[in-house]
């Protein structure tokens, strides 16, 4: 149990460290991306170049991802400060956000699936041809 906690803590420190390095690189090189996205890229490269093995971080990473939603809750609670402004425009604002989100989700999903299907079909045709 204690060994497990120790392992978990070390993994967590590694992830926090990479996140901070991500922030630092963005600031130093004035990159047009946020620190967390830079952190994703750095960790990906470290895994890819085998500097870090998946087992070195998987326990903490899995736990964080399982509870990813939790970290957005305290930020969302901030909506309480916008009460009056939102209630004033409430319904029309909600309408805009819902309809545009639906349109975005439907078109992104349909477009991606269409391109994937087209690619897979071409492959099948190619095989047919080969036969």
């Amino acid at each position: 149990m204690i060994r497990k906690i120790g392992k978990f803590s070390i993994q967590m420190v590694i992830l926090i460290g990479i996140y901070q390095i991500g922030n630092l690189t963005v600031r130093i090189f004035h990159l047009p991306i946020p620190g967390n996205v830079s952190g994703i890229i750095i960790l990906f490269l470290l895994l890819w170049l085998r500097v870090i093995q998946i087992d070195h971080i998987e326990m903490a990473a899995g736990w964080l991802l399982k509870h990813l939603g939790f970290f957005f809750i305290p930020i969302s609670v901030g909506l309480m400060t916008l009460g009056p402004a939102l209630i004033n425009k409430g319904l029309s604002l909600l309408f805009v956000l819902i309809v545009s989100a639906f349109i975005g989700i439907l078109s992104a999903g349909k477009a991606t699936q269409a391109v994937i299907m087209k690619k897979e079909k071409e492959k099948v045709n190619y095989h047919d041809h080969a036969l």
Partner: peptide
């Protein structure tokens, strides 16, 4: 931990 949690997304991306 939101920052490190976002960084952890690299794991499923790598996989």
């Amino acid at each position: 931990l939101l920052g490190p949690a976002t960084v952890a997304l690299a794991v499923p991306i790598y996989k």
